[in-house]
Design a binder for these strands. Sequence first.
DNA 1: GTCTATACGGGGATAGAC
DNA 2: GTCTATCCCCGTATAGAC
Lengths: 210, 210
Amino acid sequence: MTTTDTLSARDQILDAAESLFASKGFGPSTIKEIGARAELNPALLYYYFGSKEELYQAVLLRLGEGLVARGSAAFEAATPAESIRGLVHAQLEFLRAHPNVPKLVVRELVDHDARHAQAVILQIAAGLFQRLCGVIERGQREGSFRRDVEPRFAAVSIIAQVVYFTIARPAVGVFLGLGPRGIDAATTDAFGVHAGEFALRALSNPEPAA
Amino acid sequence: MTTTDTLSARDQILDAAESLFASKGFGPSTIKEIGARAELNPALLYYYFGSKEELYQAVLLRLGEGLVARGSAAFEAATPAESIRGLVHAQLEFLRAHPNVPKLVVRELVDHDARHAQAVILQIAAGLFQRLCGVIERGQREGSFRRDVEPRFAAVSIIAQVVYFTIARPAVGVFLGLGPRGIDAATTDAFGVHAGEFALRALSNPEPAA
DNA sequence: GTCTATACGGGGATAGAC
DNA sequence: GTCTATCCCCGTATAGAC
């Protein structure tokens, strides 16, 4: 089982690094800690990845792959409105299930101005953002959405709600009067519904006949 | 000028630490760098603050004070709609002028689950969030805003747009087709207008007579 | 209050055995 | 491929002169 073990060791390191980078950031996470969490020798990291920084990039790359997939189903909905509801719901679900994703991406944004995350950002841009814009434009053509909205700004507003809620969870909990740990699954679901409807009301055409 | 020099040294350290923590994060910022940027001996840091962590807390505390002030004027507008427009504009202006603020706060959220930022979060909650909720509720009572919206969720959605746009600037630039550095002042202003109108359309009552 | 000098630990990374 | 041992630098923090 040499091959299996090889893959497994590499993945063990990636898993350990992902959770450590997500919880502590790049700088404070140490090679020795990553090795310990992976239950492997820290020196293996250099065998597989060459350096701590290259390991970091590999983690980001692997993360980006799973991110787009989850939202894709939403774009097959019949109406633009359903697509948007589905997308918000799917993204919120995904981010809740994988809290490392937004943490790592946002950390990369503020820590390194996204220098290591260009590939991930392009993935998201092509896989989610552009398609969301397409859905909005379709709604505008079909007359259900108002035309005096810049589709790309609207897409930013939609994504912003989901991402902010996830990232700023401790602050949002305090804002809502629930305490820094007070956001539960029910609140998250309720906010997901709100975010979708909020966006749809902002987009909906007051004169559907126009 | 002993007193002046004393204050000035302390503030020089705070200024240097603020910009360094904002640009590199807490972990990677070193005592020696902070001293160098402040043009003072690194050992002074311990004289004034006791430790690197206590210095960090002092930076966060000082930052929180200026944050609320800028938005406060908006709450004196005549109508809820004007308050929301004014708040979005003022916050976007403030965040653009002080890019350290969102960076440090978000960094603290993801790095330490906001453990060091509790005081700042409470400040924002009391000084901005609650008042924003109050404005929304007033609009609902007066009939200009629809009543089937949870005011606190709506407030989160409003803040989310502004914060996300600021924090995720490199990603948003790519999304908009402008490149990672492509967001200029005009785009920021345009988005600010959009964000305000987006929220107001989502809130506005379709049957103003109700 | 401000500086110099230094202790001390822990960091990333490498050499080389197996 | 995996491990042991270790180098060397740089980090925080302190002691003590001025």
